[in-house]
Design a protein around this nucleic acid. Structure first.
Lengths: 170, 170
DNA sequence: TTGGAATGTCAACAAGGCTGACTTAAACTG
DNA sequence: CAGTTTAAGTCAGCCTTGTTGACATTCCAA
């Protein structure tokens, strides 16, 4: 409390003078934007009787086909039991296939079926569409700033997952 | 599908060439960042036996003291029954005060009590701290891009609430 | 061969969304 | 003034998605 505020130091270039008000706007922007971000997927999922948890599973299985359950648990940050319920549904509905590991037969490797790929693709497309539109509205010079702030906001372990998923090149 | 890709056109300045891969990274960044964004508040809330729903109510009451229930419903995008449960708890616990309207006695105007202000302030501070740190890490030129993309991602009605809450000046 | 890891399953529970139905009080309107 | 609409609250019940705890199975590795 006693620290910020006054810019006793040098330049003004590297130092950010962020009022609580500016920070609060950023916070509220995150809140409202996240709602928009999930709105389109939610609509499609609802038609199929699924929720966000199903989407998250589909997304990351699509992203890393053959991933095992433990890895998925780490990424999603939920309990085994919670994920299992969702996964069970997706497997029973024929959207996800669970193959027993070859080297380690305890592990189950997860893949999307053709049906699974269709639904995942449909959802991914509306989500990309919104992202595309947002980038376009904001201007391309906004994109890198957006991404940099988001990455800086993650917890370190989340950042690891994020980077591990990245296809290296951006 | 047949359109994007090839940059047949002029410059390259105004046009964005966004691969699905780049969009996907933005999507995943949103996912992981939002988790970071809520992590600190969640911790504090848990100590008090509250959840995110309580935080959202506290936040917007703090932001717009004297707001009525209907307005809050609009901002939060939940049902009356859902909000009521949370509000009931906060009122019973003495964090929120509900005053009958003067002009319109049907309305209830909501205010934080001193206790409510303390908890809200505590949560707001850790959230601002993370936002501040993220801005600092990302560099100040990233901030405006971040904000512009988020605003562009909102649904129009959410944008309205967002702007209505803003103290005009940024 | 035994300990531990990975997975799955059952049961129970809680938070926080939802819908629908209904009440009360106040305000508005013809 | 009567009737309708609006704001809020409440009751009951449902769903998703998170949580714990207990326990079985499988199978790798020391």
């Amino acid at each position: 409390m006693a620290d910020g505020k006054a810019g006793g130091t040098k330049s003004g270039e590297a130092l950010l003078f962020l009022t609580d008000e500016q920070l609060r706007k950023g916070i509220e922007a995150m809140f409202f934007a996240y709602r928009g971000f999930t709105a389109d997927p939610d609509r499609i999922l609802e038609e199929h009787g699924y929720g966000r948890a199903h989407h998250r599973a589909l997304h990351f299985i699509a992203r890393a086909p053959g991933t095992n359950v433990n890895n998925l648990l780490g990424i999603l940050g939920v309990t085994k039991q919670s994920l299992n319920r969702v996964l069970r549904t997706l497997i029973d509905d024929g959207l996800v296939e669970s193959r027993i590991g070859v080297q380690d037969k305890r592990e189950r490797h997860l893949y999307l079926t053709e049906t699974g790929k269709i639904l995942e693709g449909e959802i991914a497309e509306v989500q990309r569409a919104r992202m595309r539109a947002a980038y376009r509205k904001a201007g391309h010079e906004a994109v890198s700033g957006f991404r940099r702030v988001l990455e800086a906001m993650m917890d370190p372990d989340q950042t690891e997952f994020f980077n591990a998923l990245s296809g290296k090149e951006d």
